[in-house]
């Protein structure tokens, strides 16, 4: 199903009036079911004990590759680096053309044009972080300008960061309106809203912010920037999945999930896919609805893929370093 524009979604939604005032939004978010941390983490860990072998593993590895937002977000990024990474995203394993391309390249706004050109015609999307990534500490007009730049340069997807300070201070409506404003300037680009879960401290906050972002029109909810100590974890990603599942039940609108940062091995990626499979089901098992924000993960998936194909363990010299 296509992502609907936020206006129509919220107009039809039974939740339309929860954003009528700061007080109403607070009452709604604080009325969501609480999260028991131990139970949540235990469930996430239990899903991590699934044993995915042979054909299921091959399927999962290819699916995971196709869900990667191949990311470079360094101050030292150059056009050359972005071109190289783009080439890798389009053709992850030159020795095996059957390898699927990644979902998207994820870059800073000033690299969007470079990436756009490099992936042209491949079907690989270009995602851009925006809104004064990663801290988000800039005035709203600056953050909107940042977003407009990226969209104008050809970004298919925008990964925005929320104002964590405003959220923690309880200014929920302000955060909501900022997301709406960014959503408005995204045009047809899909909007991923980054919470920086590691800075929100509690699971209750993570559930609340997920609903807040979805109410504001997020197409994706995303755990983190990859720039802080705690990024995606099985537990906080599971919590995001529960939120999008419940949101679709309430509103009919489907929202995607993107864990980002800290997912480096095939084993981990497969566990996340198991979590998608058993929490959200097949409707979310595609790059349209689930992404991995990662860089080094791809090479590990490629090595595992080679191992499955040849029966022998591969090594870092047999995948490309970019």
């Amino acid at each position: 199903m296509p992502s609907s524009p936020p206006q129509s979604a919220s107009a039809a939604s039974p939740l339309a009036d929860v954003t009528a005032s700061d007080a109403a939004l607070r009452r709604f978010l604080h009325g969501l079911p609480g999260v028991d941390a131990v139970g949540l983490e235990a469930r996430a860990a239990a899903l991590g004990t699934r044993s995915i072998k042979t054909t299921a593993k091959a399927y999962a590895i290819d699916l995971a590759i196709s869900m990667i937002d191949l990311t470079t977000l360094e101050g030292a990024d150059t056009p050359g680096k972005v071109r190289a990474l783009s080439a890798k995203g389009v053709t992850p394993d030159p020795t095996d053309r059957g390898t699927p391309p990644v979902a998207a390249l994820c870059v800073y706004p000033d690299m969007v044009a470079e990436a756009r050109a490099a992936v042209a015609g491949s079907g690989v999307k270009v995602a851009s972080v925006a809104t004064a990534f990663p801290a988000g500490r800039a005035a709203l007009p600056v953050r909107l300008a940042d977003t407009r730049d990226a969209v104008a340069a050809g970004a298919d997807e925008i990964d925005m960061v929320i104002d964590r300070g405003a959220f923690l201070a309880g200014r929920y409506l302000e955060v909501y309106e900022q997301i709406r404003a960014v959503r408005d300037v995204c045009g047809t680009a899909r909007l991923k809203v980054i919470f920086e879960t590691g800075e929100l401290s509690t699971y209750d906050n993570i559930r609340r912010v997920s609903w807040l972002a979805m109410l504001a029109g997020a197409d994706f909810v995303k755990t983190s920037t990859g720039k802080v100590a705690v990024n995606a974890t099985p537990a906080n990603t599971l919590l995001l999945m529960e939120a999008v599942r419940d949101f679709r039940r309430e509103t009919g609108r489907q929202v995607g999930v993107k864990p980002a940062g800290g997912i480096r091995t095939s084993k981990d990626a497969v566990k996340y896919l198991v979590m998608v499979n058993e929490t959200l089901g097949a409707d979310w098992l595609s790059a349209r609805w689930f992404r991995f924000g990662a860089s080094s993960l791809l090479n590990d998936l490629l090595m595992q893929r080679q191992k499955l194909r040849t029966g022998n363990y591969s090594g870092p010299d047999y995948v490309t370093v970019d």
Partner: peptide
């Protein structure tokens, strides 16, 4: 289930 992936992510036996 309607989605193409519905039948794909069936876990292979892991005895």
């Amino acid at each position: 289930m309607a989605h193409d992936n519905a039948s794909a992510f069936t876990y292979a036996p892991a005895p």
